[in-house]
Structure formats: C-alpha cells, structure tokens
C-alpha cells in the first residue's frame, strides 16, 4: 500500500491532525500537547506574534520546532482587505506559504464571512499562497473556493469553540464528495470520537484547538486526538460497511406486485 499522505499544494504530511495554538495555559503545555499530537501543521494567529516580548510570543517557540510547518492565521480580520494585509505580513515574518484565512467579522461568535473569505482567497492564491480558508460548511462555497485556487477547504463542523461536534455532517459529506482539494474540518470538535467520525466520513484531516487546550489535561487529550485521527483514517481506508437504510419488513410491501388476481 502506498504511503498515505496529506497533500496540501506541493507539500505532504503524514499527520492528519492540525493543531491550534491559542487558549493554552502556557507555552510549555502547548508545546507538549503539540508533541503528543504528532501534528505537523500548526496554526498561530498573527495577533499573537510578539517578537518584542518572548514570554508573550507564540511564534518564537513554534518556529524552532523541527518537522512542524507553521500556518499563520488571520484571526481578527474583519474583511478581505485586512486578511490580505495580515497574510502578507505573516509571510514576511515567518516565511510560510501556508495561510489560514480566517475572516470572522463578529468577534463574539467567530463565524466565517463567506463573501469576504472568497475574495481574500482569490487574491492570496494568485499571489502564490497555499490558501486554507476557514469557511461555513457550504458545498457551493467550497467549489467556488476551489475555483479560485485554494489548497484546501476548512469547513467548520460546528461553531468555533462550541464543542458541538459534527453538527454539519450532511453538508460536510456533500463537500467531501465533490471536492478536489483536501477537506479539513476546522472548529467545533470536542471529543476524539468526533475527529474519528470526520476522518471516517472522508475528511482529509481535522484541526482542533479548544478541544485540546480547554481539556482537563491537554497533553493527554492531544494524544487521544492523534489516536482517534489515525483510527478514523484507517477506517475510511478500510471501507466501512454500508449502513442499512431501513429495517426489513416482516410482511414485504411489494407482494402485491406478484399477486395473481
């Protein structure tokens, strides 16, 4: 069997678990969780870059890690123009072509703005970024983003930080069926079983942050997610048995077709 790699543009990864870096109690815990997760792509918000103060800087400690690719994100951007500006600054600062376009104009619920996201993705993809857009679980938007050249689509499973799981699973299924780029579920997961479920469904990967950072023991939870993602992927590759759509009736409904009179 050929190596099962996650392909983002021209980059390949063995891990299918992506980790967010905010919300941890300290950098040391975040780094231990990252190690336990085996994640090879980590996202860090430009607004948490603070080269002037090492203790407050999330970028510094992450940039030193071997085998980890940084994916800066534009969290805080309210529209396409701000996200584009943030993406360019982030690329200057950390040299990564990966950019997670996060445009959530409302700082309370943090839901993505589809219209601004599409515009930012169009501009940034043309500039050579590997664009990873955080987006509503909207199958048509996923295709529109693919058309402008994104490297993946990152639909939310449920509202960010909500821990509601795969509330949008039917939309995700349609997105996956129709997508030519990796589909990565971003946001909303709470339990490793939900991550496994996303991979079983055919998602290429999942991104978690709150589910790990807000767990009682984040490092252990990161390891649990790593196992779940591997199990989910293996199950997807093994091919799940078909789900029976209805129970078999004790009295067949179609007997009338064979009736003689």
């Amino acid at each position: 069997m050929s190596a099962d790699l996650l392909q983002i543009g021209d980059l390949t990864f063995t891990s299918r678990l992506l980790l967010g870096t905010g919300k941890f109690s300290d950098s040391a815990t975040m780094l231990r969780a990252l190690a336990a997760s085996g994640a090879q792509i980590v996202t860090v918000a430009l607004r948490r870059f603070n080269p002037a103060q090492a203790a407050d800087d999330l970028f510094g400690p992450l940039s030193q890690l071997p085998g980890v690719t940084l994916m800066p994100n534009t969290s805080g951007a309210r529209d396409a123009a701000e996200a584009i500006r943030a993406a360019r600054i982030a690329r200057e600062l950390c040299g990564s072509r990966l950019i997670k376009v996060e445009i959530h104009p409302n700082p309370q619920h943090l839901l993505p703005d589809a219209i601004e996201t599409l515009e930012a993705a169009r501009v940034l993809a043309a500039e050579g970024f590997l664009v990873m857009p955080y987006m509503p679980a909207d199958p048509v938007l996923a295709k529109r983003l693919e058309d402008v050249g994104v490297a993946s689509v990152m639909p939310l499973g449920a509202p960010i930080g909500s821990g509601q799981g795969l509330g949008a699973s039917e939309m995700l299924r349609i997105i996956i069926e129709n997508s030519r780029v990796p589909v990565i579920v971003d946001a909303g997961l709470r339990a490793p079983s939900e991550a496994a479920g996303a991979l079983e469904l055919g998602c290429a990967a999942v991104l978690v942050n709150s589910a790990v950072a807000a767990a009682e023991r984040p490092v252990e939870m990161a390891a649990a997610f790593a196992q779940a993602v591997q199990a989910g992927r293996a199950a997807y590759r093994a091919g799940l048995m078909p789900r029976r759509s209805a129970a078999s009736a004790t009295s067949p409904l179609t007997n009338f077709l064979n009736a003689q009179t």
């Binding site: 948490r48 870059f49 701000e82």
Partner: peptide
C-alpha cells in the same frame, strides 16, 4: 496575554 491584536487590523 499581552498582544492579542495586530496593527494589520
């Protein structure tokens, strides 16, 4: 957390 914003915004 001291810096939770950026001049980009």
């Amino acid at each position: 957390v001291f810096k939770n914003w950026d001049a980009a915004y």
